[in-house]
């Protein structure tokens, strides 16, 4: 296996980790105004992700940095091409990042309510845009022979990419609800489970539509690379099984299945892309691939060594934090903030 492929796999891992972890952060944020009926309940909801959301978001920053280091042409083409979408996303992420800290710094209900809705939109908008953007890579964007994006904001929008955005929102919301039912006790837990039940049909239908559109409007199932085969089917089946686990009160399994569904979806998308990173809708020959968009072999080698040394440490200590905060929270828990 060449280093370009190794880095394609590492990028897949980083995006999978990002959507798995930030997926429930976004979901919890989207559910916040609906599940917390008073200030203390909302604080409980926020505190389920309070100690971990920032570390989870680093997965996104690392994925961005890794793309820059390993596939700089992709980083340049895609980030400048999706300019306005990214501006929108950055505004949402900036507001969300300060809201967790700023929310509690004033007692006034108006102030807190305003920040709660900022957390809501700061979670909804990135979820939607990430779904659209990742789908755009496979659907194709107008990229010319010199790797320049020649379209505008609306080239990002198509039935397939919009389905991708909505699916991401629905699945992350379900994932967040499953996480909340796992991390809380009492009334909030019941409400989280009820919310999961409500979101579940939409999530399943959207994911099915998304996979069908992938088959009909992209070369997902028939392009020259690998056939993704059972992976997207596994994503759908895992999501369907969530309903059973919710009904029988097996919160842990419900969460594992939403997580597994997200992992399969991301992996399937990257399998469909391989060995491309961004499909050109103008000419398949002009697609950005792991070869024409990559760094030099030397840089890839250095970065491989660095990643092999550092990633295990990160996994261990990030895993440790989930162990430290493993207890379920209730309104009677001792809450920081």
């Amino acid at each position: 296996m060449d280093l370009n492929t190794v880095w394609f796999i590492l990028i897949t891992v980083l995006f999978t980790g990002f959507f798995f972890l930030e997926g429930f952060d976004y979901g919890v944020g989207i559910l916040l105004p609906f599940l917390g009926r008073n200030d203390r309940e909302r604080r409980v909801v926020i505190n389920t992700i309070g100690p971990v959301w920032d570390g989870n978001e680093v997965w996104m920053l690392t994925a961005g940095g890794a793309l820059f280091a390993a596939f700089p042409h992709f980083y340049a083409t895609f980030f400048s091409g999706a300019y306005l979408a990214l501006v929108l996303m950055l505004v949402a992420l900036i507001l969300r990042a300060v809201s967790f800290e700023f929310r509690s710094k004033d007692e006034s209900p108006t102030w807190r309510n305003r920040w709660d809705w900022i957390i809501f939109s700061g979670s909804l908008v990135p979820a939607l845009l990430w779904g659209v953007a990742m789908s755009g890579l496979l659907y194709g964007l107008p990229v010319d022979a010199r790797m320049n994006f020649t379209g505008n904001f609306f080239d990002l929008l198509s039935p397939f990419t919009l389905a991708g955005g909505l699916t991401a929102v629905a699945v992350f919301t379900l994932h967040g609800a499953a996480y909340l039912s796992l991390k809380t006790a009492g009334e909030i837990r019941e409400r989280a489970r009820a919310a999961a039940m409500k979101v579940w049909p939409a999530a399943v239908i959207l994911l099915v539509v998304y996979v069908v559109l992938a088959g009909t409007t992209t070369d997902f199932f028939d392009h020259v690379g690998f056939n993704p085969g059972v992976v997207p089917v596994a994503a759908i089946l895992a999501l369907i099984s969530v309903r059973y686990f919710l009904g029988t009160g097996k919160d842990g399994w419900a969460f594992v299945m939403t997580a597994f569904s997200i992992v399969c979806s991301v992996v399937a998308l990257f399998i469909g892309l391989f060995p491309r990173l961004l499909v050109s809708s103008m000419n398949p020959e002009w697609s950005l691939t792991i070869y024409n968009a990559s760094s030099s072999q030397y840089t890839l080698k250095v970065m491989t060594i660095v990643a092999l040394i550092l990633v295990p440490f990160v996994l261990v200590y990030q895993g440790w934090t989930y162990w430290v905060f493993r207890k379920r929270l209730t309104v009677d828990s001792e809450l920081e903030y």
Partner: peptide, 22 residues
């Protein structure tokens, strides 16, 4: 500059951002 500039940025995230945020 991607060949040179991206590497320290990615290492910054892997080595430092995780550590401080987590």
């Amino acid at each position: 500059m991607g060949d040179i500039f991206g590497a320290p940025l990615a290492i910054e995230a892997l080595l430092a951002f995780y550590m401080e945020s987590v």
